[in-house]
């Protein structure tokens, strides 16, 4: 876990904020748990950030940025982290220390600066070509309490959902298969489609999959690696 933009001055300010029974414009302490609700999907390293109302990680019906594409096709969040850093966001990276396995949770804390009023999150879902779990600009409540937000699976619209083994490099076809997933993903699929007609970010239509681990159209196992929304739960405690 790495928390960016935390300094002694910041900590002092936070204490001061608590002492003054913090008003709406002060920094907040957030205790966050992200839960992978599925039994068959892995999440690649998760990036979570508090940012201003002007920044967006992604937006439905908009084209994905190249940084979002790199996350959605290959699980690489470094580009998104740079974008967020440049926008003075408060960032948490990779709270699970790698893949967030099915049904597992990862917890972390995030202190947001006063202008960083909105929370976003992204991580690629595996197996998929360019699917990701996301939260787009959820307004962080002023009032202390515990809040629960359920997250859907999105499609970045940058790669055809052929559902066969391939590459995680942006622009290259196929799905990345990291070693922990190797045994659970099929082989020799002929490809579900080579088209990506909707090139905007959209709600993922789900994987087709098939029931043949060594042939068929898809290398995805249809009775294990499909999903229904929501795919993740975020519990945010505003302290």
């Amino acid at each position: 876990m790495k928390v960016i933009k935390q300094s002694p001055i910041k900590a002092t300010l936070t204490l001061l904020a608590l002492a003054l029974a913090s008003t709406t414009t002060m920094a907040q302490e957030l205790a966050i748990t992200v839960t992978n609700l599925t039994q068959g999907l892995h999440f690649t390293p998760v990036v979570t950030a508090a940012h201003s109302n002007e920044s967006r990680l992604f937006m439905l019906s908009d084209m994905a940025s190249t940084e979002l594409q790199a996350m959605a096709e290959g699980g690489d969040i470094s580009g998104l982290v740079s974008l967020l850093s440049n926008a003075d966001a408060n960032i948490n990276e990779n709270p699970a220390g790698g893949l967030l396995a099915p049904a597992m949770s990862a917890s972390f804390t995030l202190t947001n600066d006063s202008g960083n009023t909105h929370l976003s999150l992204a991580a690629m879902i595996l197996p998929s070509n360019d699917g990701f779990v996301g939260l787009d600009s959820w307004e962080i409540p002023d009032e202390a309490g515990t809040y629960t937000v359920f997250l859907n699976a999105y499609d970045a619209g940058t790669e055809a959902n052929d559902e066969i083994r391939g590459s995680g490099v942006p622009g290259e076809v196929g799905m990345p298969v990291p070693p922990p997933l190797d045994a659970s993903i099929g082989m020799n699929g002929t490809g579900v489609t080579d088209m990506e007609a909707n090139n905007k970010v959209h709600i993922h239509r789900g994987s087709l999959g098939d029931d043949d681990m060594s042939a068929g159209k898809s290398d995805i196992n249809n009775s294990v690696q499909r999903w229904l929304n929501p795919v993740a739960k975020l519990t945010i405690t505003v302290l």
Partner: peptide, 21 residues
């Protein structure tokens, strides 16, 4: 004989949608 962890269901596939058995 499954993952032995409670999670969200992925939906039924059915023979009409590619689960032949």
């Amino acid at each position: 004989n499954d993952i032995d962890l409670v999670g969200y269901h992925s939906g039924v596939v059915s023979k009409d949608d590619g689960l032949s058995s």
